[in-house]
Amino acid sequence: MCTVCGCSEGEAKVEGQAIRPYQAHSHALIQGKFPHTHAAHEHTHTHSEQDTHDYGQGAARAHAPGMTQARMVQIEQDILGKNNQYAQQNRQYFASKAILALNLVSSPGSGKTTLLTETLQRLHGKLPLAVIEGDQQTNHDAERIRATGVPALQINTGKGCHLDAHMVGHALESLSLANGGLLFIENVGNLVCPAAFDLGEAHKVVILSVTEGEDKPLKYPDMFHAADIMLLNKVDLLPYLKFDVQQCEDYARRVNPNIKILHVSATSGEGMETWLAWLMQQRSGLVAQHLNALEQQVQALRNSLQL
């Protein structure tokens, strides 16, 4: 897992400007083949009768050659602890401006960016919008977003496989967000590591394409457990695929009984109005909370002044 390998060290950039890393750790690059022995590390994977090697055993639920489970757990706690501090700062910033921030996560090729651009086109002019784009390289997706008229800022993670709260915080310094707006954070295409990293968002939104297979929620349970809503995307292709929608939904709810599931297609428009209605409902609730908090502050001030 990336919390122990240091895959993103010194690589991340916001609009081409390097981000100073907050965690100094790295891993050795091993060239060529080397013999696999168990003498130097804990043997934490199991071998089943079906010849499945399970490296998810042990306290860390991961494996790194030459590193004990205890050390891996400590490193992960340190990294995630620091990330959570930055995430809380981001969350406080969003709350202060009544901004609804959503973390869009999926595997590569799920249609996430196409769905996002269609969403932006339908919402454009109705409320303030902004996007933070995360990719290992290029600014292609940010350019696609800007073509809709919505401001977008590109984060390139280099070797990193996910965004973190520190990167997002740097992006927020350069991105003008209006009060009561909607911020979409499109994460790097990856159903593993983004699950562990809180960005300060209100909700994780996981996008699953019907072209990927209905068992994705079981294969990548951490992500579907962390998400509040799943968008089953590209449903216009269902007539041409052997995809069991009910089985997929059952798998998702087995991992996360409370997950909300919507069927959408940016191509046909199916489900888009329901998706937009959910977005507006979440925003309205957040704005109402913000106004209520302001009213309480005003009342407290009145009381202190004995007005």
Results as ranks from 00 to 15, higher is better:
15 E>W: 05
68 T>V: 03
63 H>A: 02
87 A>N: 14
13 K>Y: 02
266 A>N: 02
169 G>H: 12
184 F>S: 05
228 D>M: 08
23 Q>N: 11
141 D>H: 10
300 A>I: 09
296 Q>H: 12
157 T>M: 04
199 L>A: 08
57 Q>M: 04
78 D>W: 06
10 G>D: 12
206 V>G: 02
144 R>C: 03
30 I>M: 10
306 Q>C: 08
26 S>R: 15
43 H>C: 08
306 Q>V: 11
18 A>R: 15
77 Q>E: 14
243 F>Y: 05
171 A>S: 09
162 H>C: 10
268 S>P: 00
16 G>S: 11
280 M>Q: 15
197 F>V: 01
67 M>H: 07
51 D>Y: 01
234 K>D: 04
143 E>Y: 05
106 S>P: 05
16 G>V: 09
198 D>T: 09
99 I>E: 07
294 L>Q: 15
185 I>V: 12
95 A>F: 00
175 L>A: 10
218 L>W: 09
302 R>Q: 14
130 A>L: 08
217 P>W: 08
60 A>E: 00
148 T>P: 05
61 R>T: 05
257 P>H: 10
93 Y>Q: 09
289 Q>F: 00
192 V>D: 04
79 I>E: 08
171 A>Y: 03
115 L>E: 04
152 A>Y: 02
55 Y>N: 02
287 V>P: 01
70 A>Y: 01
114 T>I: 06
163 L>H: 11
89 Q>I: 13
274 T>G: 13
39 A>Q: 11
224 F>L: 01
127 L>E: 03
166 H>T: 11
292 N>A: 15
138 T>W: 03
264 V>C: 14
204 K>V: 07
227 A>S: 15
294 L>G: 01
24 A>D: 14
250 D>M: 09
273 E>F: 01
16 G>K: 11
76 E>I: 03
215 D>T: 13
137 Q>D: 10
150 V>F: 00
237 L>Y: 02
18 A>Q: 14
27 H>M: 11
159 K>G: 15
264 V>F: 05
48 S>W: 01
113 T>C: 15
11 E>N: 13
215 D>F: 09
199 L>P: 08
152 A>R: 01
102 L>N: 06
112 K>G: 13
128 P>N: 05
107 S>V: 10
85 Q>F: 03
4 V>N: 04
301 L>N: 07
290 H>V: 00
8 S>K: 05
69 Q>K: 05
157 T>W: 06
18 A>I: 14
2 C>N: 15
200 G>Y: 04
157 T>S: 12
292 N>W: 06
190 N>F: 12
4 V>P: 04
299 Q>H: 12
140 H>G: 01
6 G>E: 04
54 D>R: 12
219 K>Q: 14
217 P>F: 07
111 G>V: 14
12 A>H: 09
271 G>V: 10
196 A>K: 09
148 T>S: 06
140 H>I: 15
115 L>R: 05
247 Q>D: 01
1 M>T: 10
31 Q>N: 12
135 D>T: 10
240 Y>W: 09
94 F>N: 03
190 N>R: 07
62 A>H: 04
47 H>I: 04
84 N>S: 08
205 V>S: 11
49 E>Q: 13
32 G>R: 09
171 A>I: 05
297 Q>M: 10
63 H>L: 06
102 L>Y: 07
208 L>E: 02
282 Q>E: 14
111 G>I: 14
44 T>G: 01
72 M>V: 06
95 A>W: 00
4 V>W: 02
